[in-house]
Design a protein around this nucleic acid. Structure first.
Lengths: 337, 337
DNA sequence: CTGTTAGCGCTTTCAG
DNA sequence: CTGAAAGCGCTAACAG
């Protein structure tokens, strides 16, 4: 492997001059720099970023901790993050945690050893230990979800959408279509956002003086099959349901699928609303009314917030909540009963 | 930031003893090691992996170059790769290239500067320059696609499925259902695999003495909307088509969507076959006959091949082609005309 | 404008 | 079993 020493020796220069030339520093004669650059090419020299990191105490690497990259939400976030950070010369170390505390811990540890400059992550509900660990990191962090109460004092920025409001609006939209018997198909595991959404559902019903029925609620999981099962469960418990809010599009699509299989007509018999606005949801054969989540945009903004924190001395914590938009399609309509 | 020096000073030991203790090397008294480990915890010490990489000439980092992480194929590959490599203590630097040569070059360069130990990647059709660059890397590489002819001499392993055979089988299946007017909706950009698939289609028609019709072929792109457009194009050019092979599921789903919109009955009027077996494809409302791609498995095997190359002195190049399976669902049936 | 020197944090001989 | 010393490849004062 070639080093700047080789270049220096070859050219009869000192390593510092070579270093200066390579890094576009001032105080180098044009011709010298020229010669260095040529020699560099000739020798097929590649700088050693690790050596540079060591001395500069800056690695130009950022950690990206996701729960599951195959989740369309995270893959789009990851795309947005990478787009912005790579432009600024940062490399991304990525890992999946499935929100398992052990994986989170292990991954964080490996990031710290690598002396990364910052982290963008979607953590689980932090237990105390992890919270402490994170608190001690002296590097900028952006959460891909809102901070919970016990995290408020942390010096961490966050980006999220307003799950509460989004759900409230969606349910309100159903109520204004005449629905009163509205089911809720929730996601397991995604506690923080999930709570907010559930509260949005509850508060909206309350606001319109609609009784909350236990049998209108089910929490089956987060995949298509869970949605099918959730829809089945709801109808078994309460056949009078006329509308359903599902906590994500896959659940909603599963619900649609099950309804279709059982010869229910959507939206005449039952209205279905999702949450996420996946690409497939706008398919003619699905045509799901849903809440649009600006996934890639969230990734981009997360990256920009991190860059911001990276470049300023004082950590200026920011908590951003993006607005969402209800996308009305054909899976929802007036209550016909 | 604490260093081993701090530990050494605190304990009145030399840095070398501390280093040995931390790395489980022999020749350290049990109690000494114990003391070091305790002090390490007390001081909240984190080793500096960059310093270690510098001296060991091994970074324990691997590059993962994808075209687009939001493509379900790549996100699942990325999951499999990460699962295996993180278990072996490797960190993954990921980047999206969209098969753009400039992005590929830039990303490769940044990987080289980081002195990564190996690369798993899905490259575009390599131009000579990139090919040279890659050839000069003295590190193990695994391609997430088969090697093309001009790449054969490279010391690179690859993993892929047999696109030719998979397509041949799919088309043969259609022919055996009585179809002779079979459309082909192809993907742009993904040249290598695409050629193989196209050849599978051609050879199969030829083998069954079916005339190849120009108007039965269209290459619209790779997304749902492209599939809709592709289906539209095919039917305009040749209304007698009774079956369609689409080069991926999204194209096939787009085709289904358009057929549904135009009130064609699938599979009675037209059979549709996809390629990939996405999760949504098994939905009751889609129910797509398709070729199953073992995506995550490919990622895992790619990682294992790389680990293999990483641990053995001699680079033992391997070219793996996994078999695929035709998943027959309700989007295909007997020719009714 | 250029060279000398020190040192980033760590591992690894080589002595003892 | 432990310590001293060298050095990985690079940057950053400081002299000149």
């Amino acid at each position: 492997m070639k080093t700047i020493k080789d270049i220096a020796k070859e050219l009869g220069l000192s390593v510092s001059t070579v270093s200066r030339s390579l890094n576009d520093k001032p105080d180098v004669k044009k011709e010298t720099r020229q010669k260095v650059l040529e020699e560099m090419k000739r020798l097929n020299y590649t700088p050693n970023a690790n050596a540079r990191s060591l001395i500069q105490k800056k690695s130009n690497m950022v950690g990206l901790m996701l729960s599951d990259i195959t989740d369309p939400f995270f893959s789009e976030v990851a795309l947005g993050v990478e787009e912005i950070l790579s432009k600024s010369g940062y490399q991304l170390i990525y890992g999946n945690t499935f929100l398992e505390v052990k994986k989170e811990k292990d991954f964080l540890k490996s990031l710290l050893e690598r002396k990364i400059d910052g982290i963008i992550m979607k953590p689980s509900n932090l237990n105390e230990e992890l919270l402490n660990t994170i608190n001690q990191l002296k590097i900028p962090i952006v959460f891909l979800r809102s901070l919970s109460e016990n995290e408020q004092e942390l010096n961490i920025s966050s980006i999220d959408v307003n799950h509460y409001q989004a759900t409230y609006n969606a349910v309100e939209y159903l109520i204004k279509l005449g629905h009163t018997n509205i089911g809720f198909i929730g996601m397991t595991k995604e506690s923080r956002e999930e709570e907010d959404r559930f509260e949005g559902y509850l508060d909206c019903l309350k606001h319109y003086n609609i009784d909350l029925l236990d049998q209108n609620i089910t929490i089956p999981g987060s995949k298509i099959l869970d949605g099918r099962y959730g829809m089945k469960t709801l109808l078994e418990k309460n056949p009078n349901i006329t509308a359903v809010f599902a906590a994500n599009d896959l659940l909603a699509i599963g619900a649609l699928d099950w309804l279709k299989k059982k010869n229910y007509i959507v939206p005449n018999d039952i209205s279905v609303i999702g949450f996420e606005n996946l690409e497939i949801s706008r398919l003619h054969i699905i045509n799901l009314t849903t809440v649009d989540l600006p996934r890639k945009e969230m990734g981009k903004q997360a990256a920009e917030m991190l860059l911001d924190m990276l470049s300023s001395e004082t950590i200026n914590k920011k908590e951003v909540k993006l607005d969402t938009q209800l996308i009305v399609r054909n899976s929802s309509g007036k209550n016909q009963k």
